[in-house]
Design a protein around this nucleic acid. Structure first.
Lengths: 172, 172
DNA sequence: CTGAACTTTCAAAACTTATTGAAAGTTTTA
DNA sequence: TAAAACTTTCAATAAGTTTTGAAAGTTCAG
């Protein structure tokens, strides 16, 4: 496979993969393109490489910046803005976990608390099943909250090293 | 909040939450409904509670069964099929991880291997950046693959207990 | 200032995905 | 075996999401 073919395949696959995770195809493709670019790219270069419109490029680059995955690069003496992606995948993964936690889990936890305070007689089977389920989800969420916070703070070597050592003795 | 209000809110929120994760709203709502039902529900009850069509109910219940989150329950002496959801959230989470891994990571790993075999001169900056990025992703994916396999096999108590103990000394 | 170079916005159009409901299929009962 | 009870399918349609591109906005050199 030539570099050009490999690039095209990586961009297409990363884009398809992204859609499974609620990220839009173009956003994932721009991310892929920037991941494999040795140098920062301008909006025009992104448009050209992916055959997308200016508005689309702008919107999705902005969203990648919001997610903390891409940065603007200003080159001295140039008007144009350039964009470059964080290349260390461990940092990328941590950043994604951090943002999703903020946008999802952190919003869900107070909702679960509210739901757990439903009124009604615990001897009523419907009430009991409801509160048991919500409390089960709450316990899980609180645990996930703590675990993810720790992961977000961890550095790669420590995290993978410890986890692997931990798991090593537990295989069946 | 009354039970009826709480149920409605939980179903709506779980549904909204699901769409963030590439699960369709109806599927997540049916899952929510079954999670909080003390007894298995029939297709008609699901249709009625969520105001959805028969086809929609059937399709999404089937998908929940495919994901291993819901089971058919046959009651002696009754024609109708009933459906009930696994209520233990740790099992639900493990099942989801297992299925997503199968549908996503397991498909991605061979693609990354193929991409890492791109031809070209390593002294070419474009080639080097490409292969470095792909190899970085491969290393991460291989690690994730192993970690997830172990998690899938782990039982709740062991996993959370060990992980928490591990993390306990590492807070800042 | 002014105008060129560039970025951002947003309404309309294209595309994608989910839902309906009636018809077809299957199983059970009598 | 026939009809009732139930489940599944799928083409049409509705709903939701993404993309376009032209217009508006911003910045900066001269």
């Amino acid at each position: 496979m030539t570099l050009a073919e490999a690039k095209a395949k990586f961009i297409a696959d990363w884009g398809r993969f992204g859609t499974n995770w609620g990220i839009n195809r173009t956003m994932a493709q721009i991310h892929a393109l920037l991941l494999i670019s040795p140098d920062p790219l301008s909006a025009d270069e992104v448009m050209e490489e992916l055959s997308i419109s200016r508005g689309n490029a702008n919107m999705n680059v902005r969203e990648l910046i919001d997610w903390g995955l891409v940065q603007k690069v200003i080159r001295p003496g140039e008007r144009k803005e350039y964009f470059s992606a964080e290349k260390d995948i461990w940092k990328v993964a941590r950043q994604i976990v951090k943002e999703r936690k903020k946008r999802e889990l952190d919003l869900m936890i107070p909702v679960l608390k509210e739901l757990s305070e439903v009124e009604g007689d615990k001897r009523d089977k419907a009430v009991k099943t409801f509160t048991d389920t919500i409390n089960n989800i709450r316990k899980f969420s609180d645990q996930a909250d703590k675990t993810l916070d720790t992961m977000i703070r961890a550095d790669e070597h420590w995290f993978l090293g410890s986890l692997m050592k931990l798991f090593a003795g537990k295989r069946d």
